[in-house]
Every structure is written in C-alpha cells, then in structure tokens.
C-alpha cells in the first residue's frame, strides 16, 4: 500500500474518531497544531494499531510529528512485519 493511501486513511481516522477539523487535517500538519494532547496521542497509537494492524508504541506518536510522518512510521512497521 502506498504512503499516500496511508496518509488518507490516517487523516480520515483523525476526523472520524478524534473529531479533528477536516479542513485542517493534511499531511504537513502536526498533532500539536491539531491540538492533540498526550492522552489523544496514546489513543491514536491504540486506534492505529487496530486500523492498520501494526504495533506502534504509545510514545512513538509525538506532538511535533506531522500526519505524514505518522503515516510513514505506520508504513515502515508494516513493511517490517
């Protein structure tokens, strides 16, 4: 699956599960800019695990990370598994 597809699915998840504003979610936007706090990032690791079937440690998503960066992390885990 290409990186673009993962970004799109992740973006959709940020809107549907977390209520992030759809018009602000884009690859270059960071979680901090989307006002994700530490609890939301742990929840994201949990939800991403279910959605993408990969192991993501709860500290691996960070406030400074962009949505595209998170998608790359997910894809790298998927390639490794």
């Amino acid at each position: 699956m290409g990186a673009g597809v993962t970004v799109d699915r992740l973006a959709e998840l940020l809107v549907s599960h977390f209520g992030a504003p759809a018009d602000r979610v884009a690859g270059g936007v960071t979680f901090e800019e989307l006002e994700f706090d530490s609890l939301a990032l742990v929840e994201l690791a949990m939800v991403a695990q279910k959605e993408f079937g990969v192991e993501v440690d709860e500290q691996e998503f960070t406030p400074e990370q962009s949505v595209a960066g998170a998608a790359r992390l997910i894809d790298s885990r998927r390639a490794a598994s």
């Binding site: 809107v15 599960h17 977390f18 209520g19 939301a40």
Partner: peptide
Amino acid sequence: PDRELGRRAAWR
C-alpha cells in the same frame, strides 16, 4: 453526542 457536542469533545 457527536451532533450535540461535536466529535472533538464527545469522544473524550
């Protein structure tokens, strides 16, 4: 709840 509060507040 999503309609009343918005998903952003409701899921928490």
